[in-house]
């Protein structure tokens, strides 16, 4: 495979270079390359530069296939904050990198699984749009879960 490089652009207009054979791990980029040769810059309007740097770090990994699973796990573990992980998951979703997406989601799920309702709302910044009555109804029905 040729050592062609691609340029990715984050939403704050920063440019990142990456070798094409590594970049095609992302299904989105692979499709783009197939379609129009990807001569120009590939814009990623929903990914900020920090996250894109992380993704590129991930794509640049030099791991044997059998160690890959562990690497992904470690990679995600090192960035254990929920906002970062969510950004990462979103970037992985846009770029269609399945392994990274799954690992990031798994980590988030692990983190929030013991959270109470309030903690989860705070951690994921969810706006509570339920009335207390509605909430109480669910609470009563699934008392064992709270």
């Amino acid at each position: 495979m040729s050592k062609k490089t691609l340029t990715l652009m984050s939403k704050d207009k920063q440019l990142f270079n990456i070798e094409e054979h590594l970049a095609v791990q992302s299904v989105t980029i692979r499709n783009m390359v197939k379609e129009d040769g990807a001569s120009s810059v590939i814009p990623l309007p929903r990914v900020d530069s920090e996250t894109l740097a992380l993704v590129i770090e991930y794509l640049n990994r030099q791991q044997a296939p059998e160690e890959d699973e562990d690497y992904v796990k470690k990679f995600v573990d090192e960035r254990g904050e929920i906002p970062t992980l969510l950004e990462l998951a979103q970037a992985a979703l846009d770029l269609d990198i399945k392994k990274l997406m799954d690992a990031a989601c798994m980590k988030v799920a692990d983190l929030i699984k013991d959270f109470t309702l309030e903690e989860v709302r705070e951690a994921l910044r969810i706006e509570n749009d339920r009335t207390p009555e509605e909430e109480k109804a669910i609470r009563d029905e699934f008392q064992w879960a709270f």
Partner: peptide
């Protein structure tokens, strides 16, 4: 994807989080 990895207990609990 995240929710599909949670077990029944947190899942039922998070039903309350938002609509």
């Amino acid at each position: 994807n995240i929710l599909s990895r949670l077990s029944a207990k947190p899942l039922m609990r998070f039903r309350c989080a938002s609509k």
